[in-house]
């Protein structure tokens, strides 16, 4: 090329050429979708409490039911369609965690139950569990040290 660009110049040039995500509308969509999922969670919790469960158990049941719904909607191929609209609104809630567990498992089915579904079920959720547990372990050490005094 006559007008040889360095890699850095080229990367800056393409940054200008590449359209940005429509961040404002994306945020509104994420807000609405995420908000609705949380309201559904709130409804389930309220219902559970009405049926006599304490706050903690009601919360746990809420998680289980939302995970179930997220898994089912993923199997029915509905969750990815909502996600296309909702972005982080469907990634961040616990239903998104369910989606990240189900989707690789579903796809890897063709490679068998153990090395397909079994191994791939953690491809996206694995890091979440690892770093979640690691963080809680560190927090545990902090709590334990505090408890010594």
């Amino acid at each position: 090329m006559k007008h040889e660009m360095t890699n850095q110049e080229y990367n800056e040039y393409i940054k200008k050429k590449t359209p940005n995500s429509k961040i404002f509308t994306n945020c509104i969509k994420a807000f609405i979708a995420g908000g609705i999922i949380c309201v559904i969670g709130q409804c389930i919790t309220a219902l559970m409490k009405k049926w006599g469960l304490n706050q903690e158990d009601a919360g746990t049941y809420t998680s289980i039911i939302l995970v179930f719904l997220g898994a089912l909607l993923t199997g029915l191929d509905i969750y990815p369609r909502i996600a296309k609209f909702a972005g982080a609104g469907t990634v961040v809630p616990i239903t998104g965690f369910a989606n990240s567990v189900v989707s690789p498992a579903l796809e890897a089915k063709t490679e068998g139950m153990v090395l397909g579904t079994g191994a791939k079920i953690f491809t996206i959720a694995g890091p979440v569990i690892l770093y979640g547990i690691l963080a809680s372990w560190l927090a545990g050490i902090v709590y334990w040290i505090i408890s010594l005094f």
């Binding site: 807000f31 972005g87 982080a88």
Partner: peptide
């Protein structure tokens, strides 16, 4: 629940 839940998701969207 709607507002706080929605806002947390917005943080994710911005990221």
């Amino acid at each position: 629940a709607f507002i706080i839940g929605g806002l947390i998701c917005v943080v994710g969207q911005i990221l």
